[in-house]
Design a protein around this nucleic acid. Structure first.
Lengths: 234, 234
DNA sequence: TAGCGTACTGAACATGCGTTCAACATGCGG
DNA sequence: CCGCATGTTGAACGCATGTTCAGTACGCTA
C-alpha cells in the first residue's frame, strides 16, 4: 500500500500509475460498461501491462470497487459544492465550459445504476431520501403545496433527474441537439418550471376521472385482488 | 425459412422449437442483458443444443434481431390495445393479475434502451413523438396549458415513464414495496396527478429566480460562451 | 556494494465464449 | 426403396478474457 491512497485528483499529467489506471478504468466503465471493458483495454489506455492492474487492484472486481469509491466521492464533493451559491455557480460554469468532462462520472454512475450494483442502489437511495427531506422542508415553510405521500412525491421528482442521468444522449437526440449540454438543459428548464409551478392540465378533469376509476377498481376488485397481488409468481 | 414466421404467441406449451428458443432468449436478455447471456444458457433454457441456435438464427446477433422484432411487436400491439377503453381495462387487469409477466418485455426494452441499440432508440423516439402529438392536441383543445416548446415538454413528460421502465425495482425498493406492482403504481399516481394539475410550488418564486439567473448567465457569458460549447472536447 | 522490497513486464495458463462441422434422425416426393 | 432437404446433436475449434508467475528494473537502507 502507498501513502498517497485515493486522494489524488485526476487533472494533471503527473499522476500515480495507480491513479492513471483508475482514471482509465473509470472512463472505460463509463463508456462501455463493466462487462464489456477488458483489463487489457484499460491497461493499454493507462500505458501499462495487464499484470499491473492485478498487482494494484487484485482483480477486475477490485478495480471496480476502487472506481466506485472514487466516483461516489466525486458526487459527494459536487453535492457539497452545490450547497453554497458560489459553489453552485462554479459547478454550472464548469459544466458550461466543458460538458463532456462532467459526463464521465455521470455515465459511470448511470452504468452503476442500470447494472444494479450496490453503489448505484445507494446513490438512488440517498438521492430520493434527500429529495424527500426537501419536500418535507418545502411543505413546512410553505414553498411547496402539501402532499399526501412525501416519499412517493420525492420519487416522482427524482425520476426526472434520474432519466437525465441515464439517457442524456437519447434526450439530446430527440431534441435534435448534437450533444447533451447547456442548450439541452436550457430547453428542459422551461417545461420543468412550468410543470412545477402551475402544472399542465387546465382543470381537475383528468385528476377526477383517474381517481374515480381507481376507486371503481377498488370496489370491483375487493373480492380477491385486494392485498398483495405483488410478487405472486416470483 | 418457415411459413410460421414470427406470429406464434408464447402462451401454450406446443411452441415451435424456434419460438421456444426465442422466448428463452428474450427472457435471458431481459434479465441479464445481451452481453452477459450465453448461447449455451439460452439453449439449455429452451432444452436444445447450442448448435441449433446458430442453425435457426445464424448468430447471436441474429437471435437478438429476432427478439427485438418480437418485443417491439408486443409493445405495438399493447399500445393499440390501450387506445380503446375496453382494451385499456384489459391491459390493466392483466397487469394487476400478474405484474411479473409484463415485466419480461418491459425489462427487455429497458435493456435495449440502456445498451443503446437501434431498437431502443426507435422506441424512445416514437414514445416522445407520440407524447408531443398529445401535447399539441391537448393545447389545441384546451386540456393542456399552452406550452413554449412542445417537444421539450414531451421529453419532460416522457422521462417519468422512461424512468419507470428503466428502474422499476429501484423505485419499488425506495418505496419500501416488495416488487413493482399495482401498489407502487397507485402510490405514484397521486403525486403525478397533483404535479400535473396544480404543480408543486405554491407561487412563482422559483420560476422567477431561475429564469432571472439564466438571463444573467446569458448576459455575462455573451463574450465567448454563446454558440456551440457543445462537444468541444469530443 | 550487497540486499531487499516494491513497481512493473510479458509470456503463459485455464476457462468460457461464439461458432463450425460431421454425423444422425426424420419425413416426404419419386 | 432411394434421395434429399430439414431439424437436431454434441464434440471440436479458435479466440478473447481474467489471472498467474517467473523474471527484470530500480530505489532505498545498511
Amino acid at each position: 500500500m502507498r501513502s498517497t491512497c485515493g486522494t489524488e485528483r485526476s487533472g494533471g499529467d503527473d499522476l500515480t500509475t495507480r491513479a492513471r489506471i483508475r482514471d482509465a478504468a473509470v472512463a472505460r466503465f463509463a463508456r462501455e460498461g463493466f462487462h464489456r471493458t477488458t483489463m487489457r483495454a484499460v491497461a493499454a489506455d493507462a500505458g501499462v501491462s495487464p499484470g499491473l492492474l492485478i498487482h494494484h487492484f487484485g482483480s477486475k472486481d477490485g478495480l471496480r470497487r476502487q472506481c466506485d469509491e472514487y466516483v461516489l466521492a466525486w458526487f459527494v464533493q459536487r453535492a457539497r459544492a452545490e450547497a453554497s451559491t458560489d459553489g453552485l455557480r462554479e459547478v454550472i460554469a464548469s459544466f458550461v465550459a466543458d460538458p463532456a468532462a462532467t459526463r464521465v462520472p455521470m455515465d459511470y454512475m448511470a452504468r452503476a445504476v442500470t447494472e444494479g450494483t450496490p453503489t448505484g442502489a445507494g446513490f438512488i437511495d440517498t438521492m430520493i431520501t434527500e429529495t424527500e427531506q426537501y419536500v418535507h422542508a418545502g411543505v413546512a415553510d410553505g414553498t411547496l403545496r402539501p402532499v399526501d405521500d412525501a416519499r412517493a412525491t420525492a420519487v416522482v421528482m427524482a425520476m426526472g433527474s434520474l432519466a437525465m442521468l441515464l439517457l442524456p444522449d437519447q434526450i439530446a437526440r430527440t431534441l435534435g441537439e448534437p450533444a447533451f449540454g447547456p442548450t439541452v438543459l436550457r430547453r428542459l428548464t422551461g417545461p420543468l418550471l412550468q410543470l412545477y409551478t402551475e402544472g399542465l392540465y387546465t382543470d381537475e378533469t383528468v385528476r377526477r376521472i383517474t381517481e374515480d376509476s381507481l376507486a371503481a377498481l377498488d370496489g370491483a376488485g375487493s373480492h380477491g385482488t385486494e392485498a398483495g397481488p405483488e410478487g405472486s409468481t416470483r
